[in-house]
Design a protein around this nucleic acid. Structure first.
Length: 557
RNA sequence: CGGGGAGUGGCGCAGUCUGGUAGCGCACCCGGCUGGGGGCCGGGCGGUCGCAGGUUCAAAUCCUGUCUCCCCGACCA
């Protein structure tokens, strides 16, 4: 490809409203342009990168026997009513009516559609197991799109669905997918973690997320040797606190001290010597008091899972109605009280249940539930955890019969008995892979793409005016490289060398060749690896350059 | 949805308080010089100042309404 013919709108300055590195660099490099909130156009060079990711995914899906197909973005609302998601998803679902006033939905994923098909097309155990996948747009009316491509309202997803006759079959398929995901992200040159993930209120028997660590990530990953989990569900051993001094005992007058910090400060004790009350209300239980150590925070997702139902924080009115006083809440005989697992037996300062007083209690052991948020410095297997921001680039999920039951997707087994099909779903966002790579491999000059994602394999920078011997040589080399196995971008523009180098570093093709007057004098091309901007020692002889360049390329990250 | 910020040429900005000929840098076009890290000189093109009302002799500027975008939070199959 000749750069002089490529629509590559590079910019010296990032958009004023861009914050995330990938957002700034991908716009500056001419890869993407914004259309609206969470809506992006891929420019030609950017789309090449996206399609590189797509092709890696495709090869790995095909490699485990999944079959590529394509299902529509527009779907009848009826399917979503059948699955229950028409009600449960809420405003995130794009809804509209067609000209006949029929309710329609932009698919946010394709469980409904694929299960609709499988329910009618698969009748026998002989047709199982089955894996189907496609690359298709997803529409999600996100409350807050952000950070360029990291959270958008429309994006291509590879979503695969598996159909097995039982849980054991699903386990096998799930492992195939899990291994394929590792290969996909490794091939793409991404740093990533496989994390235990929340299976949500939908049930399901297991889920993993693939998280790419980066500064702009909107999730947090808890990491320790042999352990990685989304902060949403992570568990770890708490950091110890010194025991409550014996001098602190009985009822304590704590006027106006409604926060852990205030009480701990006034008493001169560690915040972990206090218990914090987190009053919630659920539909089936009413008011529940959740007690966590004073220096800890309740993890609302973990609490929801443990309660087995959604909750809302109790309002001051609800507390007042129960004769309680916000700021001085403690364990109560009148309401169910649950203790976090980090609340070990011992003496704690708790709210006395009346204004301006706290009291020391001596807690026995007893039932505990793990509902707190893990913190940096907590330990797993004796090792302190670190918490890193990360972006979710893929997930795999054991759906079970969540969709096959409502759609009646079942098969007849050898004994002639009808059984529900057991499903799994497996998603990857190629755009997020690309954005994550930009986050991980971006620097102040641009993006140093992993070679597997780079829009071209090499960029040839021709120095000098058209018609000069050096440019003739560049043209000849371009032709030679085109005949090789490499995809080459040739900067043949009438531009200053500095501008060409700056654009090349912005675009981030992994290997840059420079051919100018100097090269003709020395007989050597200059070659620079974009990662680390490191020159290839001694250059590359112009004679037979294509083969040498191919060899160099194969050693790139 | 709550809080904060912003809409002026392709990009980045000034001008708005205090109403009076729309301006700067980059990019773009033409000519010349230059030719290995965004170079220099000269000449140009391009904007109904987000939109709609209103006030005024006069509105980018004041008033009202509205749309859009960004950031933080809530939310996120």
């Amino acid at each position: 490809m000749r750069l002089s013919h490529l629509l590559l709108p590079t910019e010296r300055q990032p958009p004023a409203d861009a914050e995330a590195l990938s957002h700034k660099l991908m716009v500056r490099a001419g890869l993407i342009r914004q259309v609206g909130a969470g809506l992006w156009t891929w420019m030609p060079a950017g789309w090449r990168i996206h399609q590189k990711a797509v092709q890696i995914i495709r090869e790995e899906m095909d490699g485990i026997g999944a079959q590529e197909m394509s299902m529509p973005l527009i779907t009848p609302a009826e399917h979503w009513v059948t699955s229950g998601r028409h009600d449960s998803v809420g405003a995130e679902l794009f809804r509209f009516q067609d000209r006949k006033r029929a309710d329609m939905v932009l698919a946010m994923s394709h469980e409904e559609t694929v299960t609709f098909h499988v329910s009618s097309l698969v009748r026998s155990y002989r047709q199982l197991p089955l894996q189907l996948y496609h690359f298709q747009l997803k529409g999600r009316d996100e409350a807050r799109p952000r950070a360029g491509l990291l959270r958008t309202r429309e994006f291509v997803m590879k979503d695969a669905y598996s159909f097995d006759r039982d849980e054991e079959g699903l386990d096998v398929t799930y492992e195939l997918q899990r291994a394929a995901y590792h290969r996909i992200f490794e091939r793409a040159g991404l740093r990533f973690y496989e994390c235990e993930a929340d299976v949500g209120m939908m049930g399901g028997s297991g889920a993993h997320e693939f998280m790419a660590p980066c500064a702009a990530g909107e999730n947090d990953v808890v990491l320790a040797p042999g352990y990685s989990a989304n902060l949403e569900i992570a568990s770890a051993d708490p950091q110890p606190v010194p025991p409550l001094p014996d001098a602190v005992q009985g009822e304590l007058h704590t006027p106006g001290q409604t926060t852990v910090e205030a009480v701990a400060g006034a008493l001169g004790v560690h915040p972990g010597n206090l218990l914090k009350a987190f009053p919630v209300v659920t539909e089936s239980r009413g008011l529940v008091m959740v007690m966590v150590r004073g220096d800890h925070r309740v993890n609302e997702l973990k609490l929801t899972t443990k309660l087995g139902e959604p909750f809302k924080q109790a309002t001051p009115e609800q507390l007042g109605g129960a004769g309680m006083h916000p700021g001085f809440l403690g364990p109560s005989a009148e309401v169910q009280t649950l203790y976090d697992a980090a609340v070990t037996p011992g003496r704690y300062v708790v709210g006395a249940g009346k204004p301006d007083h706290h009291v020391v209690v001596d807690l026995e052991g007893g039932e505990r539930i793990d509902v707190r948020t893990v913190e940096e410095g907590d330990t797993v297997g004796g090792h302190p955890v670190v918490i890193e921001p990360a972006i979710e680039i893929g997930n795999i999920f054991k759906l079970g019969t969540r969709y096959s039951e409502p759609f009646g997707a079942s098969y007849v087994d050898e004994a002639g008995k009808t059984r529900p099909i057991v499903m799994g779903s497996y998603g990857v966002g190629p755009a997020r892979m690309v954005a994550a790579a930009a986050e991980q491999w971006g620097d102040e000059r641009g993006i140093a793409w992993p070679r597997a994602l780079a829009p071209w394999d090499v960029e040839l920078v021709g120095i000098g005016k058209a018609g000069t011997p050096e440019r003739d040589a560049a043209e000849a080399l371009y032709a030679e490289l085109q005949a090789s196995a490499l995809d080459v971008l040739y900067d043949d523009r009438e531009a200053k060398p500095g501008e060409k180098f700056a654009d090349a570093e912005l675009l981030g093709v992994p290997l840059r060749l420079t051919l100018g007057k100097r090269s003709l004098e020395s007989g050597q091309l200059e070659a620079q690896r974009r990662r680390g901007r490191e020159d290839v020692e001694g250059g590359v002889p112009i004679g037979g350059a294509a083969a040498a360049v191919e060899a160099l390329w194969h050693e790139l990250p």
